[in-house]
């Protein structure tokens, strides 16, 4: 134990570089997954056959492919098609795509949880689809969707370690490299685990606070 506290501070600076990459990939992928998820969900609830069908197909296909394979595809196959991306860009895009179906389901279930009477009331004062979504449905759906949205963010934070498979030196890869050069497996992987925990715990806490708050207001 005392050995751990003596050695650990020395490894932190290198691991912190990994933390930076982890946060960058997580945040970037989260934003992209959110945007894509909103697009898929809007298409699915649009009531327009071909749009809904296209979105459903995309969701099924993407969800059926492992995230790692999507990353490989974007990093190794895209250059053959004339699109070269840095490893970090590929990781953000790949994870963003891989997570978009989960986001879409989160938003869709939020939207579908809203009473039909809300839509009817909005239509009856002359709102069109855009106003209905923006002013009436989405503001309410967000309250329903926030807790699962938060959980998805935590899953994405952990899955950002997949970026290591395409050479992004994020936290887990930095840890692995450091461990194999120092043989301090216990110290380093304990540190890595603790750092992941330190990043996800505030998210978890925020999430359950939200759930409590929203639970009260109904």
């Amino acid at each position: 134990m005392s050995h751990f506290f003596e050695q650990a501070p020395g490894y932190l600076p290198i691991l912190m570089q990994g933390v930076y990459m982890t946060l960058l990939v997580t945040f970037g992928a989260f934003v992209l997954a959110t945007v894509l998820g909103l697009v898929w969900a809007s298409m699915r609830v649009s009531g327009i056959g071909p749009l809904a069908w296209t979105a459903s197909t995309i969701i099924i296909v993407v969800r059926g492919i492992p995230g790692m394979v999507i990353l490989f595809y974007i990093y190794f196959v895209m250059p053959d098609l004339g699109l070269s991306l840095s490893a970090v860009q590929a990781a953000i895009i790949g994870l963003g795509i891989a997570y978009s179906p989960y986001m879409a389901e989160v938003f869709r279930s939020g939207i579908e949880a809203i009473d039909r009477g809300q839509t009817e009331a909005a239509l009856s004062i002359g709102m069109g689809w855009g106003l209905l979504m923006r002013r009436i449905i989405l503001p309410q759906a967000i309250r329903v969707a926030l807790p699962p949205y938060g959980s998805t963010m935590i899953m994405l934070l952990k899955d950002s370690s997949l970026a290591s498979t395409i050479t992004v030196a994020e936290l887990s890869l930095q840890g692995k490299l450091l461990a194999s050069s120092t043989f301090e497996n216990t110290i380093i992987f304990t540190l890595v685990a603790l750092i992941y925990l330190a990043m996800s715990l505030p998210l978890t806490a925020f999430n359950s606070w939200l759930e409590r708050r929203l639970g009260k207001s109904r």
């Binding site: 009473d115 009477g117 809300q118 009817e120 009331a121 909005a122 239509l123 009856s124 004062i125 002359g126 709102m127 069109g128 002013r135 009436i136 503001p139 309410q140 309250r143």
Partner: peptide, 29 residues
């Protein structure tokens, strides 16, 4: 949409917008 702004509707289950105050509900349209 124009027709709906000229013929308003009141529902059995009110269908007020729960995320808006009474005033905002009335001013929304």
């Amino acid at each position: 949409r124009r027709i709906r702004t000229r013929v308003a509707m009141v529902f059995q289950r009110f269908n007020l917008f729960p995320h808006m105050t009474a005033l905002e509900n009335v001013a929304e349209g």
